[in-house]
Design a protein around this nucleic acid. Sequence first.
DNA 1: CACCAGGCAAGCC
DNA 2: GGCTTGCATGGT
Length: 289
Amino acid sequence: MNTQMTGKDLVVTGLRDFDLKHIFDCGQCFRWNMDSDGSYIGVALGRALRIKQSGDTVTLYDTSEKDFQNIWRGYFDLDRDYGEIKKALAADDIMRAAVSYGGGIRILNQDLWETVVSFIISASNNIPRIKGIIERLCALYGSEIEYGGEIYYSFPDCETLARLKAEDLAPIRAGFRDKYIIDAARRFASGDIDEKYIRSLDAEGAKKELMRINGVGNKVANCILLFGLSHTEAFPVDVWIKRIMEYCYFDGETSINAVSEFAEKKFGALGGFAQQYLFFYAREEKIGL
DNA sequence: CACCAGGCAAGCC
DNA sequence: GGCTTGCATGGT
């Protein structure tokens, strides 16, 4: 991987196992959108960014070497060898196909608090609507970020949301999830849920702690472990994963627990990566429907 | 109209 | 403990 500045843009070359479409469409994040020119624009970690890929060249517009090193390099998980992971996972025909199909997936290292709220919103919902709810939440209670002559909105911090009541979230149309968002905000703002403490725990301990939040059950907690806490063994089982695993590895319908246990045995420490390849493959290819 | 969407909490037994 | 049901909203 090489980087160089050209004007205010940073150009990265020599990236392997990296594809923006795979990264942004595999269901792990909700604030990146493709623009008419094929670039993606998004907000993460309090910053806006436009990013575009052609082949193995990726351009980060209007940024700095410092932000790349301190923010985006970690966010995009650029220091992990995905070639090794893909090789280890491609042990049967199904996984070979899934890994080949979403070969550019990277598991983003996202902000914990934002991940908690985003996946509370994801419960019994669909991705376009999740994105809409989150955008309205940010526009209403986030702060303005000026970038490239446009205004974007940061993800609102927990203190801001902790002062609200569920009714104050009516405009974002989150439905029954509004009270869960407020509960999460109050726990984070009061220190009842403490990020440093959670980060000091192993996956099992962190999950138990997260599930104290109203609206965070087993599945949402697994998403938070994987996307917000770098516990890459976590294997969230949603309807899509359940469906494709039943289709590929079971003889018809089974339980969520059976799928989880099977995945733990089969993928072990690489469960999270396997889950992302399978999720992207199932959704894009409509396998197992 | 019914059914579903990256589930969860509360109420049953 | 496991199982069932209601839950807001929007799309098909």
